[in-house]
Amino acid sequence: MHTQNLAKTLPDWHSKPFRLTRSEIANPLTVVKTFMTDFPLPEIRKTLNDWLSRVLISNAPDPLNYIWFREELERFMEACYTSQERTVEPLSRSSNFLALLGHELQGQLTGIIQALNSIGTHKQSDGTFSEEVNVYIDYIKMITLNAKTVYENMIASSVAGNGKLKILEEEMLVEPFIQSCIDSFSILSSLQNIRIDRDVFMPPGIKGVTDFVKLRQIFSNLLLNAFKYAQPESYIIARAHVYGEKMILKVISRGKTIPTEKLKIIFEPYQTLDQVNAGAGLGLYICKQFTDLLGGNIEVRSKKGLTAFSVTLSFSSVKLDKYVK
């Protein structure tokens, strides 16, 4: 009875009982992983070559078929090793999700504690605080914003990895929304002495229907990334244009030119441009995931110290209303 039930779960092409157990049939990748751990590819190639030599020496019938089979088998093995290398790494990283989240937030919280301690040193004899405290308060606001972004990126990347992202659409006036996204970086702009130049062009009163939560995270991540790598005392251009039913977001900053090899993988998870400013490496990954989900496209160009990220999005509907203040 056990054998009959097992046979029902096997594919039509099997001609003999499987060597795999029930658990291995349910998760065959574990067998692939074990095999590749125990048998390195060079060792497999050597074994196949030894077998081929024996076949040719023994004058076995139709050696060309064996040669063809060996070539295809070797291609199959190479494909297994390549696919396993691509799938195992993200799984191992996702298993460290909580550790990575804790590490990222710890740095932000440490900065907040240091700023609060510094505020305490500016307390005057009458119990009030000197004006220098305002700098530390602004610093706390900036770090809190960074911590919130880190947290949102980590949670979003976990959901994206499970394929459970959803679009929650709402209708909203676009221009005030874009301005609010840029406004949230005014403190960071002041503290880092990096100017934000706004280039917001759209007809007054224009409304869009999209997932504005995800849209905010896309724009915020691009701006935060620009501040990370921008040259001191330089500028960042925050651009938002609406043409018909298309919105184009662009963030341009001056700093180091991104190498070509980095441009190819910059939207993959856990990729950072350098170790000094490195975070979890999820901001641009989330930008790509959310842009794809909203049916848009994201690109990056970097040349002669100027780096430009461009996002093109479609609204499900865009209409002109008379703007009411």
Rank of each mutant, 00 (worst) to 15 (best):
Val31His: 01
Val31Arg: 00
Val31Gly: 01
Val31Met: 03
Val32Asp: 04
Val32Ile: 10
Lys33Thr: 09
Lys33Glu: 15
Lys33Phe: 09
Thr34Gly: 10
Phe35His: 02
Phe35Trp: 04
Phe35Glu: 04
Met36Ile: 10
Met36Asn: 06
Thr37Ala: 12
Thr37Asn: 09
Asp38Val: 11
Phe39His: 11
Pro40Lys: 02
Pro40Asn: 00
Pro40Phe: 00
Leu41Arg: 06
Pro42Gln: 02
Arg45Lys: 12
Arg45Gln: 07
Arg45Phe: 07
Lys46Ala: 06
Lys46Asn: 05
Thr47Asp: 08
Thr47Ala: 14
Thr47Leu: 15
Leu48Cys: 01
Asn49Asp: 14
Asp50Tyr: 04
Trp51His: 15
Trp51Phe: 11
Trp51Met: 15
Leu52His: 12
Ser53Tyr: 10
Arg54Lys: 13
Arg54Gly: 07
Arg54Tyr: 08
Arg54Glu: 09
Leu56Asp: 07
Ile57Asp: 11
Ile57Leu: 14
Ile57Tyr: 15
Ile57Gly: 04
Ile57Glu: 14
Ile57Val: 10
Ile57Arg: 15
Ile57Thr: 10
Ile57Lys: 15
Ser58Lys: 05
Ser58Ala: 08
Asn59Thr: 04
Asn59Trp: 00
Asn59Ser: 07
Asn59Met: 03
Ala60Arg: 08
Ala60Leu: 06
Pro61Arg: 02
Asp62Gly: 01
Pro63Trp: 01
Tyr66Asn: 08
Tyr66Ala: 09
Tyr66Gly: 04
Ile67Pro: 00
Ile67Thr: 05
Phe69Cys: 09
Arg70Pro: 02
Glu71Ala: 06
Glu71Arg: 12
Glu71Ser: 10
Glu74Ala: 09
Glu74Lys: 12
Arg75Cys: 07
Arg75Thr: 11
Arg75Ser: 10
Phe76Ser: 08
Glu78Met: 06
Glu78Cys: 04
Glu78Phe: 01
Glu78Asp: 07
Cys80Met: 13
Cys80Pro: 03
Cys80Thr: 07
Cys80Glu: 14
Tyr81Gly: 00
Tyr81Leu: 05
Tyr81Ile: 07
Tyr81Gln: 06
Thr82Lys: 13
Thr82Ala: 14
Thr82Cys: 09
Ser83Trp: 08
Gln84Trp: 06
Gln84Ser: 10
Gln84Ile: 09
Arg86Gln: 11
Thr87Ala: 11
Thr87Phe: 06
Val88Asp: 05
Val88His: 02
Glu89Gln: 13
Glu89Pro: 03
Glu89Trp: 10
Glu89His: 10
Glu89Ala: 12
Pro90Ile: 00
Pro90Val: 00
Pro90Thr: 00
Pro90Ser: 00
Pro90Cys: 00
Ser92Gln: 14
Ser94Trp: 11
Ser94Phe: 14
Ser95Phe: 13
Asn96His: 13
Phe97Lys: 02
Leu98Arg: 08
Leu98Pro: 00
Leu98Val: 06
Leu98Gly: 03
Ala99Ser: 10
Ala99Gly: 12
Ala99His: 11
Ala99Lys: 14
Leu100Thr: 12
Leu101Met: 02
Leu101Lys: 01
Gly102Ser: 03
His103Arg: 14
